[in-house]
Amino acid sequence: MFKYSTIEKEKDIEVHLEGDLDIDGTEVVKEELIPMLQEYEQIKINFEKVLFVDSSGIGLLLELVQSLQKKEKKVSIINVTENVANVFELLQLPEILGEEVFL
């Protein structure tokens, strides 16, 4: 099951993702996260509790980050576990989204 929780502070928000970021997270991301995060200026996405990803999940992440970047929000992805980071590297996510996104 893919879940998330948030910690807000004025215009900043940190989103804690929990569970596998995969095709089953499509609805959560597209219908909840993307519209909701448009409200904030600085968005941190915490990947600490994401242990597995699939290609659809990465597609969702790209969509999410790129939609926010388009509106010139500052997005960063934090606490990515080593194995997941490995997958991101293989797909050159840092090159696609910008090195500064991955902290």
Partner: peptide, 20 residues
């Protein structure tokens, strides 16, 4: 890769991956 799930391949095929 240990953190990669290929479960969606059976549902969507490789299309999402190819797009990335």
């Amino acid at each position: 890769a240990p953190a990669f799930k290929s479960t969606d391949f059976s549902r969507t095929g490789l299309q999402p991956l190819i797009n990335i």
